[in-house]
Amino acid sequence: MNVKTIITWIFQIIPAVILLQTLRFKFTADPMSVEIFTALGMEPWGRILIGILELIAGILLLTPRAVLGAVLAFGVMVGAIIGHVSILGVTGQHGPLFLMAVATLICSAIVIHLRRTQLPLFGKTME
């Protein structure tokens, strides 16, 4: 196993852990989670949909198809950051959540970059 593979896996495991361990708040309708999605106008369907997307992304990140998980995680995190910037705020009560979203975004972006040749459709032209 070479250094690049190890680095790639580290950047897959970090967002996978973040994504998977926050799921319980979404799926158990934790008051804070409900409050966030109410603010976004997507309660409860958005909370469950995003939860499912994060679950898929988290699992894929731990498989050889990690690039798909990274794209999904990247998309969900861009959405989360838009939510924080436009509605929820980036400091205060939701500050830590925002920082976790940024960390996940960066990690998944790195995974996408390292595994870009495995992207469906685009991969072949991404050397």
Binding site: L40, G41, M42, G46, V71, F74, G75, V76, V78, G79, I82, G83, S86, I87, R116, F122, M126
Partner: peptide
Amino acid sequence: GYFIHFAFHFLTVSFIFLTLVNFF
């Protein structure tokens, strides 16, 4: 997404991704 409904951001995110691919 900002003015009407947050759900529009699903599409915002998709197009941001395409923009990045295009930039690459």
